[in-house]
């Protein structure tokens, strides 16, 4: 971590790899679980692992809610985790100002994905009177990712505020065009 990449008024760089790598690893883990559940929902795997709640996973993964959309909900979750991992990995350690758009897409991907998993956790017992172990594990992962992802988004939002107050184009700064790079601290 080089000092020059620390945002003004901060004590560390939220875009440092030590900050981002744990989130990327969690996203890959979540992607693995969601993919496994999706393959069961697509009937490629005949059974699903459920150590604690008997028929719970079978009930939840075949529920009307899980098949509300054209693709099963776990497949959508897998896509969400993949988006988290990719947008978490793209860009160097000064990306909070060199490419704010990716940091903001990252924050927007992590936040709602976590929120949707919590919603699904509420649906399990309330609508179907069952629990699904791997669905809960996936929800825990997506909730744990929210907090550590938000600091980078905050650094980018503060940077965009400084851009707005300068005479540099907000549009160009948001997309991190080379012509505006380093013009705003």
């Amino acid at each position: 971590m080089t000092a020059k990449n620390v945002p003004p008024g901060w004590d560390y760089n939220p875009a440092a790899w030590s900050q981002r790598l744990p989130i990327i690893i969690l996203a890959i883990l979540g992607f693995g679980i969601a993919t496994y559940l999706a393959l069961y929902q697509l009937e490629i795997f005949p059974t699903v692992w459920e150590p604690f709640f008997g028929d719970g996973s079978v009930t939840i993964l075949n529920s009307p809610i899980s098949h509300l959309l054209p693709i099963p909900d776990a497949a959508l979750g897998a896509f969400g985790y993949l988006l988290d991992a990719v947008t978490g990995a793209v860009g160097g350690t000064r990306r909070w100002r060199s490419m704010p758009w990716i940091v903001i897409v990252f924050g927007l991907a992590v936040g709602p994905l976590g929120f949707v998993s919590v919603l699904l956790v509420v649906f399990q017992p309330v609508l179907f009177d069952s629990w699904c172990t791997l669905c809960l594990a996936s929800a825990v992962i997506s909730v744990v990712m929210i907090g550590p992802a938000m600091d980078e988004m905050l650094a980018s939002l503060q940077y965009m505020k400084r851009v707005k107050d300068s005479d540099v184009s907000t549009w160009k700064a948001f997309w991190g065009l080379k012509s505006v790079n380093e013009k705003v601290k």
Binding site: P8, Q158, R162
Partner: peptide, 26 residues
Amino acid sequence: IENRYGGGWSAAWRDNTLHQREAQKQ
């Protein structure tokens, strides 16, 4: 709270916050 965060979430829209003052010094 051991670290500074440029003035926190409200500093993304308020004026005269920590990150703006620090940026001016640089």
